[in-house]
């Protein structure tokens, strides 16, 4: 229904325009749907528009949770692909 990816604002380039970056790839997008965009914000991009800011505290909490769950899981990270 709505593919969107997290990207980081690296430059405010005009009224409702920002440059965002992910893995070195940069793109110009519209910030008309969010309030007070700042350089350093992470935003969710859909069809060339930032549709929401990412709450980085929540994002990092989830990463921590997943790391803990990973340790609980028993499987060793087997490097061999398939039999």
């Amino acid at each position: 229904m709505c593919l969107a990816v997290p990207m980081k604002i690296v430059e405010i380039a005009g009224k409702n325009i920002a440059v965002v970056e992910a893995d070195g790839a940069k793109a110009r997008i519209s910030t008309s749907l969010i309030t007070n965009p700042q350089v350093g914000d992470f935003v969710i991009i859909h069809a060339g528009y930032a549709i929401e800011k990412i709450n980085q505290k929540e994002a990092d909490l989830r990463i921590l949770l997943f790391k803990e769950l990973a340790e609980l899981s028993q499987i060793p990270d087997n490097n061999a692909a398939l039999p």
């Binding site: 992910a22 992470f42 340790e71 899981s73």
Partner: peptide, 19 residues
Amino acid sequence: MKYIDEYRNSETASYLVGE
């Protein structure tokens, strides 16, 4: 990609499948 790759690890997946 930041805030994507961290949510794609196999060990967490296998824990959740177990749950």
